[in-house]
Amino acid sequence: MRSRVLSASCVHRSPTVPTELTLAQQIDLQISTNGPMSLATYMGLCLTHPTKGYYKGSDPLGAKGDFITAPEISQMFGELIGFHLVNLWQQMDEPKSFNLVELGPGRGTLMADILRVACRAPGFRDALKLKLFETNPALTAQQRNRLESYEPQWLENFEQFDDGPVLIVANEFFDALPIRQFVRKDDGWHERLVGHSDGKRVFGLSPTPIPATSMPDVIANAENESVFEVCFAASEVMSRLAKIVGTQGGSILAIDYGYAQTQTGETLQGVRNHAFADVLENPGETDLSAHVDFGILAAVAREVGLAVEPLATQGEFLTRLGIAERAKALTGANPGSADDIRVAYERLTADDQMGKIFKAFCAHSPGLVPPGFVS
């Protein structure tokens, strides 16, 4: 992706915009009025605008949506995470009250599969306080239909947890948080901005360089034209959650595509109707995401005293939890679905599908031994 150098700074006050305009018109008006905006601002508007953002609209999941997540592929994914969580609850001496939290619960499929398994453990169902963090009204309605019997509470912030340990699950949550991008030039790093050229939205660069010394040491010697992505929102979310877990006990399980250590590389992508799409076209109608820097999240968690497991691929994590055995059992009980079960198993675990590019991350109270990881 090539970038033009733009003449205006990225720091501007947002104008008052008529709400009857489309999101694309609102973004264009803001750029025309205030100049280029940061990529993080653009992504935030596209995904979470109060009325026109992507995650404020209809259900984006499934064959009729834009993408399919692991829980929608097979019940095995959620069932194994259910075992993972029950094991942690048992290691904590089966507290009589604990918070079970999901960030971005989608249709509620993952949590329904988790609880179908987890609630078989005596005392687990009575002890859990189910908390869901969701911004999409259409998905909230589906979560309510699937999970109503567990009396869920929908969170507006991360200060609404009850007393007791906190077990947090975040599947494909961190990848959707807004990122900023910086491009290396001879005179330093320049932030990539979204601006206008010839009446169209284009990427460009802030004319003001950021010294290389202000960037992480690991990318200090990056070559010209290298792209560095940083997600301050992910660090902030992890910091807040880690502090709560550090105080109340528990764990944070995050599964997403990403990388183990901070590095350069451009991963921002747009997906629409199950195909890659231009991130600058159809704002509010295209899913935008970027790979997660798990190295940063691990450092943030360790700062508040949590232990962090070595990052596992999704295939490794599910295999250690017994997905092969679970697939065999499901096939035995449903021989007519053998081909579907095999395809789902391969899709979740194979290196050339979701098995390698997706990673499993776990930060937790010292002393716990989370299943699925090798310390």
Rank of each mutant, 00 (worst) to 15 (best):
R2G: 08
R4A: 02
L6Y: 05
A8I: 06
A8E: 14
V11M: 14
H12G: 09
S14Q: 12
E20Y: 12
L21P: 13
I27K: 14
D28H: 06
T33R: 13
M37V: 10
L39V: 01
A40F: 01
A40G: 05
T41N: 06
M43R: 04
M43Q: 01
G44W: 09
L47S: 10
Y54W: 08
G62D: 06
A63Q: 14
K64G: 12
F67A: 10
E72N: 12
S74F: 03
I81D: 01
G82C: 04
H84Y: 09
H84P: 04
L85W: 11
N87F: 04
Q91Y: 08
K96G: 09
F98T: 13
F98Q: 10
N99K: 02
L100R: 11
L103K: 14
G104S: 04
G104V: 02
P105K: 09
G106F: 10
T109Y: 07
L110D: 10
L115G: 10
V117T: 05
C119S: 12
F124W: 08
N136P: 01
E148C: 13
Y150Q: 05
Y150I: 06
P152R: 13
Q153I: 09
Q153R: 15
W154Y: 12
D162N: 14
D162T: 03
V166E: 07
A170P: 12
D175G: 00
D175R: 03
Q181F: 00
K185C: 06
E191G: 04
R192Y: 00
L193S: 00
T208S: 06
P209L: 06
A212E: 11
A212R: 14
T213A: 15
P216T: 05
V218C: 13
N221C: 08
A222Y: 12
A222M: 07
E225H: 13
E225I: 02
S226K: 09
V227W: 03
V230E: 13
C231T: 08
F232L: 15
A233C: 10
A233E: 15
E236T: 07
L241D: 08
K243F: 04
G249I: 02
Y259C: 06
T264E: 07
F276R: 13
A277L: 08
P283Q: 02
D287N: 04
G295D: 07
L297I: 07
L297R: 08
A298T: 02
A298S: 12
A301M: 07
R302L: 01
E303A: 14
G305F: 01
E309V: 02
G315P: 09
R320C: 01
L321M: 11
I323Y: 01
P335L: 00
R342G: 01
A344I: 00
I357Y: 05
C362K: 03
A363P: 09
G367F: 06
V374F: 11
V374R: 15
S375A: 15
S375D: 14
